[in-house]
Design a protein around this nucleic acid. Structure first.
Lengths: 222, 222
DNA sequence: ATACTAATGACACTCAGTGCCGAAGGGAAG
DNA sequence: CTTCCCTTCGGCACTGAGTGTCATTAGTAT
């Protein structure tokens, strides 16, 4: 889990603030919920369970998180901001693709002691259908960060083909690396990411692109 | 819309079948629903509306489609089968990446008269958050088809890094092309796809991959 | 003590999705 | 035509997510 305080002491600190104090925090809810998800499964855990377990009312829960699906993500926006800054401060003469590689890798580097926790989170996010689906919306925001950088560097519109395609491709490769990471207990995420980027790099090598004219019509799809 | 009959005459044809005749069809429901979605918006259309508009009971609706989100996809599995076959029948000495390009392009070729309909479908699928999210699950099946082909060609496990990364990358590029297609009324999808594939091809050219050692730890993300 | 402010939680409501079960509509055998 | 056997239909009740409303609670400032 990202941001917020380490774990305990949320309701302490009589901050010089006006009005009633919050009775919990994003981080605490995230923790409590993740625990329940791992114990009983995501689908078998109701929002009532979570609220009860956190000692708050059901209605209050929805003031902290817009949906049950948002719990495992925690405070993603803050992370995106960090990546934005990181990209902005890279040397302007660094090849765009290298910049993206570096930023994405940096984005996925985190302290050793957080690894197990992160694993659990990602295990859920990449395996529970409901969460897989919901995560798409987060990925969109993530891609947007990359696309904006590329667009800035190349001086083209953010929504044009090149920034969007690169952003999509980097997301794709990252997720692919994550899948491998989860599949092997001893894997190193950073290494997998580098490897996956490199693979994309060389995937198209050693052959010309014929792209034959293709045959008769056939229906649609993504 | 994929499979099923052109549009009308669903309840005709006294097929030599036992038991009561179905009172509608996937295709008809898809049509009715899509109409409503376009008219009133996806979120403002309830399943009751759709059922009523199709002249069936709400309960019956869920016997045709497992969820409201599945409506715009129609019979996707059939399309996937078609792509599987197409891939299988490609010459075994064609470079893997070329094979994927060809298959994906083939998969997205469809008769002119269906283009407007397809556009509407995809407009929804790529813009309505709820549908964007749900589509992820379909994309997973789509990726699996590509990954299986790559794995077969390269004689490695389906769930290993290379097949998965390639599948992800091709999905990414396809979606990126689709976004462009939707953004420009006069765009040619096939052309955009080729262009996007080529871009990925050359994206990594003209620079070595430094991938610097990177700095201090920072939290996670996709 | 009083006024103001912000968070809480109870209640009621909408909508998606599911299990259950009797009823409707069709073919086939008597 | 009647009966039996299927299969689909659709009503009902229920769970669970998410939202609007509003009185209540717990703080700070005066």
């Amino acid at each position: 889990m990202p941001s917020d305080e380490p774990d305990d002491a949320q309701r302490a600190a009589p901050l010089a603030r006006i009005g009633r104090q919050p009775s919990t925090s994003h981080a605490e809810l995230s923790h409590v919920a993740l625990q329940l998800f791992i114990e009983h499964g995501f689908d078998n855990t109701t929002v009532d369970d979570i609220a009860a377990s956190a000692g708050i009312g059901r209605r209050t829960f929805f003031r902290y998180f817009p949906s049950k699906n948002d719990l495992p993500w925690g405070d993603f926006e803050t992370l995106l901001d960090r990546m934005r800054v990181f990209l902005r401060e890279l040397p302007a003469d660094m090849p765009v693709v290298d910049a993206l590689c570096t930023a994405v890798i940096e984005f996925n580097r985190f302290p050793l002691e957080e690894v197990p926790y992160h694993r659990q989170r990602m295990e859920l996010l990449l395996n529970v259908p409901s969460l897989m689906a919901h995560s798409t919306l987060r990925y969109t925001a993530w891609r947007q960060v990359l696309a904006e950088y590329v667009a800035g560097r190349l001086d083209v519109p953010v929504d044009s083909l090149r920034p969007q395609t690169l952003a999509w491709a980097f997301l794709a490769v990252s997720l692919s690396a994550y899948e491998q990471w989860l599949k092997h207990d001893d894997a190193d995420l950073i290494q997998l990411l580098s490897e996956a980027f490199r693979m994309l790099d060389t995937a198209f090598d050693r052959q010309e692109h014929s792209l034959p004219p293709a045959s008769p019509p056939s229906p649609p799809g993504p």
